[in-house]
């Protein structure tokens, strides 16, 4: 399977600020790839390099097997982009903007557009200046989703949407997945990425700190366990690979490194397990671990 996006060693400086610091990224054709990171991590900068809007200082970037800077125009025919901050022309109606952006890309599926307008409950006759943030977002989403392109680049596409519309967006993504469209989804909404994405790359300070399927990422992380035992659970603190132990009478909550899980569960058994609940780490926890500053990590270590 070829890659829709492959980036290696990407560097971008804005004056003295290094926005991207050797970023590596691979997005396979046909997958929905989550691009996770806090504000200012370099998500939008990466997207702007991919769109040929800004030049990169070092590294290599390939988009749909082309060079995003020199072949921008040809490549843009094959992709659609939804910016994080959608601004519309104040005196153009939403419908006009949708048609215009579609035509500028080289075509729009009209029946698909009509369906999307209905699904997103968007009035296309309103002028740009009268739309709310969420509705501006919908205009850009409809324009992108209704075009027959092979790659969608979405920068925090649900930022202004209400939960109902967010669900609608997810449904659209599922359909795109089955149609084989590649989606590159930058987000800091973990639930969205968790629900949609085949693979995830986590960016921090201009570098990818983690990349893989959710299953692979969970492998590197801790499982949360809540247990109720018949004897004193205090000895759990001494187990290898156990963190954040909280003991209340006979109940104990703790996190355990995934590769120590087997060992820990065996050591738990002699304590007389009455109930045992374990759940894999949510992306939230994954995320917090990666973005916790070293100071915070230190303090949580001392708790154990």
């Amino acid at each position: 399977m070829s890659n829709a996006i492959s980036i290696s060693g990407l560097v971008k400086n804005f004056g003295h600020v290094r926005a991207l610091d050797g970023l590596d990224l691979a997005v396979a054709t046909g997958e929905i790839h989550g691009f996770l990171g806090p504000n200012g991590a370099g998500k939008t900068t990466t997207i702007r390099v991919l769109l040929g809007l800004i030049r990169h200082d070092a590294g290599s970037v390939a988009l749909l097997d082309g060079d995003p800077w020199t072949q921008a125009t040809e490549l843009h025919r094959r992709l659609a982009y939804v910016p994080g901050d959608v601004m519309l022309w104040p005196n153009l109606s939403g419908g006009e903007v949708i048609d215009l952006l579609g035509r500028l890309r080289g075509g729009l599926d009209t029946s698909k557009k009509d369906k999307l307008l209905e699904r997103f409950d968007l009035d296309p006759t309103k002028k740009g200046r009268t739309y709310s943030k969420g509705n501006r977002q919908k205009v850009a989403l409809v324009a992108a989703l209704a075009s027959n392109v092979e790659l969608l680049i979405l920068d925090e596409p649900t930022a202004g949407l209400d939960p109902l519309m967010e669900a609608e967006f997810r449904a659209c993504m599922e359909e795109d997945r089955s149609n084989g469209r590649t989606v590159f989804l930058a987000s800091h909404i973990l639930a969205e990425v968790e629900a949609l994405c085949d693979r995830v790359s986590i960016v921090r300070k201009g570098k990818i700190v983690e990349s893989g399927t959710l299953a692979e990422l969970r492998h590197l992380t801790r499982t949360t366990i809540s247990a109720e035992v018949t004897s004193n659970p205090g000895s759990v603190v001494g187990f290898n690979g156990v963190h954040d132990v909280r003991v209340h009478d006979h109940k104990v909550d703790f996190e355990v490194d995934s590769d120590r899980l087997d060992e820990v569960v065996r050591s738990l058994a002699p304590l007389g397990v009455r109930s045992l609940v374990s759940h894999p780490p949510t992306l939230e926890e994954l995320f917090l671990r990666h973005y916790q500053d070293d100071v915070d990590l230190g303090s949580s270590e001392t708790e154990t």
Partner: peptide
């Protein structure tokens, strides 16, 4: 940006 991200 949205215009330059098309085939323009």
């Amino acid at each position: 940006e949205p215009v330059l991200a098309t085939a323009t």
